[in-house]
């Protein structure tokens, strides 16, 4: 099963590397990883989408926790969350179909961010399945390039996230 794990770690040289090294060294699956600064510039938030049975996920969380640079690890799976990904897509257009592509972009509430005489660049934001859907619809027109940001996730409202490991 897919799990979304949010990791607060030191915003420091090596912290990200150490987490990536741990994942590859232990042979854990990674679907996506994203990292960025938080409200506290000393701390980064890393969002990792990984896959495994309960035993593996328990090890993932424990191994993350064991690293000295990690501060808090939260498994956000099955929590009320807001999950977003951003994708940039460069799509070919022909004489007759530019309007269609722009319509599709609007349906997905995306933006056209670049254009030249061969292709359009679309920016689409949303949960990953929405991005998958947009890609599927645009595929027949010919997609030249895709860049996806990976997931960023926060829990909603007042509901406390299940803190799997907080270093007390």
């Amino acid at each position: 099963m897919q799990h979304i794990i949010s990791v607060l770690c030191e915003n420091q040289f090596g912290a990200f590397n150490r987490i990536v090294t741990m994942f590859s060294g232990k042979g854990f699956n990674v679907h996506s990883m994203s990292i960025g600064e938080t409200e506290n510039p000393e701390i980064s938030r890393m969002t990792i989408v990984t896959e495994g049975d309960d035993k593996i996920i328990e090890q993932v969380v424990k191994q993350l926790n064991r690293l000295i640079d990690t501060i808090k690890i939260v498994d956000l799976t099955e929590q009320a969350i807001v999950q977003r990904e951003l994708a940039l897509l460069t799509v070919f257009y022909q004489k007759g179909n530019r309007g269609e592509i722009i319509d599709i972009c609007e349906i997905f509430r995306g933006n056209i961010v670049d254009i030249n005489n061969k292709n359009l660049m679309l920016e689409i934001t949303g949960p990953p399945d929405k991005i998958d859907a947009a890609i599927n619809v645009l595929m027949p027109y010919g997609i030249k390039e895709i860049a996806r940001s990976g997931n960023v996730v926060l829990k909603r409202g007042e509901q406390a996230a299940k803190v799997v490991h907080e270093k007390e």
Partner: peptide
């Protein structure tokens, strides 16, 4: 003392 040792090889 190391939680990662627990349930790693044997439940």
């Amino acid at each position: 003392i190391d939680p990662t040792c627990i349930d790693k090889n044997v439940i």
